[in-house]
Amino acid sequence: MEVRAFSKSYDQNPVLRFPAFSFEKGAVYAVIGANGSGKSTFARVLAGALFCDQKSSPLPAGCKVGYMPQKSYGFRMSVEKNILLGGKDRQRARQMMEGLAITHLAERRADRLSGGETARMALVRTLMKPYDLVLLDEPTAAMDIASAALAENCILDYRRETGGVMVIVTHSLKQARRLGDQVLFFHQGNLLEWGPSAQVLEQPEQEETRRFLEFYGA
């Protein structure tokens, strides 16, 4: 999947510059970088939630995109109804709810869940149907360790089933290693380094990447 080069500025201050890039089908891309490095802006532009400076989507025409925003939102209806907004297959919904241990929450109002429960529901909702590109912005940030492990299994199952491109923004380098085939490192609004996970996380070429990894204890 070819992504055109794009940039994003706020009040003429550039916050993101992304070069033309080719996503490999079926691969998982872990996006890492410090706060304010442009990771979420990158995800939001690809999702269509933000206009880039070029005013047109950098993705190929007709590309179906699924996106889980950084702040999960539970609509004022039951968890099950929320999940069915993502896709109509009730059996799949039940399976995925089991996978993320939220079956007991099915009838609960989604706007009254805890942050971690909302994130689990939002992940199931996003992965209800196949997309060409799935963007998950810090999907496990609000979850406890056990729920995050279930979420990671769920993400890997989805990848096996659908074979689309997955982009996961994360602050956890361990998660980037576990989930990502490739790692994209953002620094001050630029894609500074990218490549296979093992290479970027263990033998980074750029000094900034090395410093970041040392600081975050990779």
């Binding site: 939001r44 999702a47 269509g48 939630a49 179906k64 995109v65 699924g66 996106y67 889980m68 925003p69 702040k71 999960s72 939102y73 609509f75 907004l85 993502g86 939002a122 909702r125 996003t126 149907k129 997309y131 963007l135």
Partner: peptide, 12 residues
Amino acid sequence: GSVRETAMGLGL
């Protein structure tokens, strides 16, 4: 903002 972004992410 939150509703629109979530709905957009689900293809609604």
